[in-house]
Amino acid sequence: MVSVDSLYDKIKRWTVEFVGGSGYSNQMTGYMTGELQTVVFTLILASLFRIFSIPLGMVLLIAVAAALLYFAPMIVHVERESSNDLNRVLFWVVIYFAVIIAVTLWGR
């Protein structure tokens, strides 16, 4: 039996699973657009790694694509990690700062 669902219906059903509430609410459009944007942005960011090293950039791009598929829906994680909870912000600042120092010292 062939499914009569369009691609839109499939994506909507999948998104509703993690959004909850009405499938036609304005929050729903935000979450769906957000999910798409996050994936696109992350892939573009990964491709920017070619500035440092093209072969490493290619590896990173594939790894990121795999990670996006594995952790989907991404938007839930993005929202949680972008919480304004002080502990979480401090945690990310420490990680982030470590990366900056690592990259700059490596660049030297």
Partner: peptide, 23 residues
């Protein structure tokens, strides 16, 4: 690598800010 670091932060900010605005 200094400007590359600054650029990465800028692009990440654009991305996360606008995605969070959508929600």
């Amino acid at each position: 690598f200094a400007r590359e670091v600054m650029l990465s932060i800028s692009v990440l900010t654009m991305m996360l800010g606008v995605v969070m605005a959508l929600l």
